[in-house]
Amino acid sequence: MGWNLELKNWVAQNLYLPFKVLRYLETKAYHLHCRSITSIHKDAKFVYRGRVYNIRKQRDAIKVGANSVICGELLTFAHGGSIEIGEWCFVGEGSKIWSSEQVKIGNRVLISHNVNIHDTNSHPLHAQARHEHFVEIVQQGHPPKADNIISSPIIIEDDVWVGFNSIILRGVKVGAGSIIGAGSIITKDVPANSLFLQNKIVKYLDENS
């Protein structure tokens, strides 16, 4: 028993600390990389597993405001897209915001984990064109043109809370102060100050809700 305890202490002292240092250095290096390819406020931060894929390679295509925390994934396509996130926002782990048109998120917006926000169909509707698009991605990377892929902007206004496992699709506006219940699918506009649950508006919120 004593030997096992000594072994555990040795492992903790000699392996765990270097692992923490390595993780810190890796995270720090990735944060510097994110800042080099996107426009991120100095007081915003990416935490462990937060990721940016700025395929457009235009720094202003992705903007993150002051005090926002990104644990999820932000991606713009080679043929277009922009993501703008305001101040004091949160994007949870496993959440993905993909844009080929525009995703604009206001201030104080909370996006829980495993949320998908996509302003595009990502692929053509026609089967042959879809296959050709896939082959091009695999062989050459994302194409700089995608005229046959449907996309339209998403706007999420101030003080919105999006519950985990929710999906927000192209062309919708989520009004200020609204709450999107966990597991919801948003395909149409959501009015301001409303509670959207089980794919419908349950009630309108006020300061006493």
Rank of each mutant, 00 (worst) to 15 (best):
H123Y: 08
W98F: 11
I105V: 15
T120N: 01
G94Y: 13
T120S: 15
V109Q: 04
V69F: 09
S68L: 05
K63Q: 10
S95N: 04
S99D: 00
K96L: 08
I111Y: 07
C89W: 06
K96T: 05
K63E: 07
N67R: 14
I105G: 10
G81C: 04
K104D: 07
G94D: 12
S68A: 06
S99K: 01
V64K: 00
V115K: 01
E87S: 14
H118C: 09
V109E: 12
V69I: 15
S99F: 00
L110H: 13
N114E: 15
G94I: 14
G86W: 03
T76Y: 04
W98N: 07
S82N: 11
G65C: 03
G94L: 08
K63H: 07
N116M: 13
L74P: 02
P124I: 00
N116R: 02
C89A: 13
E93P: 02
Q102D: 08
T76L: 07
W98Q: 06
K96Q: 08
A78G: 06
N67Q: 14
S68M: 09
L110S: 08
G106R: 04
S112E: 08
S95I: 08
V115G: 08
C71H: 13
D119A: 07
D119P: 06
E101L: 01
G81R: 09
I97R: 05
S112M: 00
